[in-house]
């Protein structure tokens, strides 16, 4: 009995080791650079939607077909199965699907910018390797090689939604005020960071992110705008309007898909947004408060649009 147990333990160990060697972390293969290529010393690892991507960039003077052929051969030798080969960024195929006459379709294709990137995918067990080859630029191509794991039951990379914690999301959020100036006649929200300012003559568009909740931001502007001489013209919530619409026996439902796997529900973001319209003798101001699409606990966005009304005398109409 003891011998049988030992034998079973040995078999389990061998199977585990074999599986690990065949499909596991331990079998990350060393993918060579492309023919006539040189390393750009760019690479490392990044996280996308919880998946760790490890990659490396190369530059190559070989043709796209040569590079593709090289990697096809390499991965075939290493028992990888080719699961994808497509031109991404090339919208011609999408345009072909449109119900348009041939001439319109061709004109549309010509008018759209061309972004030609070839993407090849290879798979062996949980391991996935991808090669991306850029269009030719100044006699050379960029080649990127990415490796990641896709355990059974987990979605493919294309079906994976980004996370709000991914570096390319979190690092892109402004932490300090963007260059420019706040409006003199409309207060900035407390605890706010200015994201952008578009100022053109009598019109301005300023956006902030703030740690205030949407309700707090709403209350803040309701309380302070009159102090700046503004009169409330409209206080509208997209959610309330939708609710009123649906109460009358009609049905208008939004079904906006998620953008971040762990972000806020975009349908809620839209319905929880509030629009405040103010007016005074000289101008109109619109304050739009939108919950933070990544995490509403972080606050909300406040966008202020200021439009000074055209003076008839200024525009030379008063004659």
């Amino acid at each position: 009995m003891r011998q049988i147990a030992r034998l079973l333990a040995l078999v389990i160990c061998l199977l585990t080791a074999g599986f690990y060697i065949a499909y596991g972390e331990g079998d990350k293969i060393d993918i060579p650079g492309p023919p006539q290529g040189s390393s750009l010393d760019k690479g490392g690892s990044t996280k996308f939607g919880g998946k760790e991507l490890r990659g490396k960039d190369y530059s190559s003077s070989a043709s796209g077909e040569e590079i593709a052929g090289f990697y096809d051969y390499f991965f075939e030798q290493n028992e990888f199965e080719k699961v994808g080969d497509q031109n991404i960024g090339n919208v011609s195929s999408a345009v072909n699907e449109l119900d348009l006459d041939a001439q319109t379709r061709d004109e549309l294709k010509k008018s759209l910018p061309k972004i030609d990137i070839r993407r090849m995918q290879y798979k062996k067990g949980e391991q996935v390797a991808e090669v991306v080859i850029s269009d030719e630029t100044t006699g050379s191509r960029k080649v990127g090689i990415v490796q990641y794991l896709q355990p059974p039951g987990t979605p493919a990379l294309d079906k994976t939604l980004p996370s709000v914690h991914d570096s390319f999301v979190a690092d892109s959020i402004p932490k300090e005020d963007a260059p420019g100036e706040d409006l003199q006649t409309v207060p900035r929200p407390p605890k706010g960071v200015r994201w952008s300012v578009t100022n053109s003559g009598k019109n301005a568009d300023v956006m902030y992110s703030t740690a205030l909740s949407p309700q707090e931001a709403h209350d803040f502007y309701q309380a302070t705008m009159p102090e700046y001489g503004w009169q409330l013209d409209k206080d509208a919530s997209a959610g309330e309007l939708l609710k009123a619409y649906n109460q009358k026996g009609r049905k208008l439902e939004m079904n906006i898909p998620q953008i971040f796997s762990d972000g806020e529900d975009l349908n809620k973001v839209v319905t929880d947004s509030v629009l405040l319209k103010y007016t005074n003798e000289a101008a109109d101001a619109q304050v739009l408060i939108t919950p933070n699409i990544m995490d509403k606990a972080q606050g909300c966005y406040v966008r202020i649009q200021y439009n000074e009304r055209h003076n008839r005398a200024d525009s030379g109409e008063a004659q």
């Binding site: 750009l40 760019k42 690479g43 490392g44 990044t46 996308f48 991507l53 990659g55 490396k56 960039d57 991404i88 960024g89 990137i117 993407r119 991808e130 991306v132 850029s134 960029k142 080649v143 990127g144 090689i145 990415v146 990379l157 294309d158 994976t160 939604l161 980004p162 570096s167 390319f168 690092d171 892109s172 939004m254 079904n255 906006i256 898909p257 953008i259 975009l266």
Partner: peptide, 30 residues
């Protein structure tokens, strides 16, 4: 964007652009 300076991140950029395009299409659709 500087976050996509690394070339192989183009895969992420494409995936993200597709997600945003799908959302935008549905927004306009609705």
């Amino acid at each position: 964007n500087p976050a996509f300076e690394v070339w192989y991140m183009v895969i992420v950029a494409v995936i993200l652009a597709l997600v945003i395009a799908a959302i935008s299409t549905i927004l306009v659709w609705e």
